[in-house]
């Protein structure tokens, strides 16, 4: 028996919108720890890892570990029927081949339930160890989204370089080149507007902009984004989900020529 009640239902809607462009089908794993997902895109270049900790739910019951295979476009279709202020409850019985999404309006005058068929998904799970990164950049998520969008109108790849001077995003294409430098800036009115660079050593890596743009679909989930870079590792683009967990995107770099 599984029953997860989330008063801030819009959060689940945003999570789905954040990942459904990257991944088509995925297994949602439920355990005592929380509601999680790990899935790769079809070309196995990018990976999304989601964690919503059990403490973040108003009610969390998970009698035994459960993995539920879902088509994310179908989940999104269901969740789009929930109002932005609705309370969402996810329910499943042991051994059932369906999951139920229940939507309650804030004043309880409308209750809807949507039952969705589950599917068997044979997905590969990768073991991602904790790592020390050469550089970690924290910046406003809207700024990062803007940079990725702007650069993708010029080129297909972005070179992210971190030095003492700041973080530089560069691209080149048929029509020309572009460089955007963001300097460390801690003197802002609100902490979420700061750009903070923690650098152990300079690093420069090249990534496909198509994936970076896809990651920025998570922007509504968090005011800030953290980009962790090391020369021999995939980049980690993390959006913290307030008091609940995170959504992390991993992207393998392009091979330098």
């Amino acid at each position: 028996m599984l029953e997860l009640r989330l008063v801030q239902g819009s959060l689940l809607k945003k999570v789905l919108e954040a990942i459904r462009e990257l991944v088509t089908d995925a297994n949602f794993d439920c355990s005592a720890t929380g509601f999680s997902l790990q899935a790769m895109d079809s070309s196995h270049v990018a990976l999304v890892a989601l964690l919503l900790r059990s403490e973040g739910f108003e009610h969390y019951r998970c009698d035994r570990n459960l993995s539920m295979g879902m088509n994310l476009n179908n989940v999104s279709k269901m969740l789009r029927c929930a109002g932005n202020n609705d309370i969402i409850t996810v329910k499943a019985d042991d051994g059932s081949d369906t999951v139920t999404f229940m939507f309650e309006s804030p004043n309880q005058d409308k209750i809807a339930d949507f039952e969705m068929k589950l599917m068997d998904i044979d997905s590969e799970h990768l073991g991602i160890p904790d790592a020390e990164y050469q550089a970690i950049v924290r910046m406003p998520s809207s700024e990062f989204a803007r940079i990725c969008k702007d650069l993708s109108s010029i080129g297909d790849t972005v070179i992210i370089s971190v030095t003492k001077e700041g973080v530089k995003f560069s691209t080149a294409g048929d029509i020309g080149t572009a460089n955007i430098v963001c300097r460390q800036n801690k003197t802002v009115d609100k902490p979420e507007e700061a750009t903070i660079i923690e650098m152990q050593e300079p690093v420069s890596l090249t990534f496909a902009l198509r994936y970076m743009n896809s990651f920025t679909k998570a922007t509504p989930l968090s005011e800030t984004v953290t980009i962790s870079l090391s020369s021999d590792l995939p980049v980690v683009v993390e959006y913290k989900i307030a008091e609940m967990g995170y959504i992390r995107f991993y992207l393998a770099p392009k091979i330098e020529e």
Binding site: G127, D156, P234, K254, I255
Partner: peptide
């Protein structure tokens, strides 16, 4: 075009 690496060359399958 620069070649793209796969995630499996960094992380093991578990």
């Amino acid at each position: 075009k620069q070649p793209q690496q796969a995630l499996s060359s960094f992380y093991p399958s578990v």
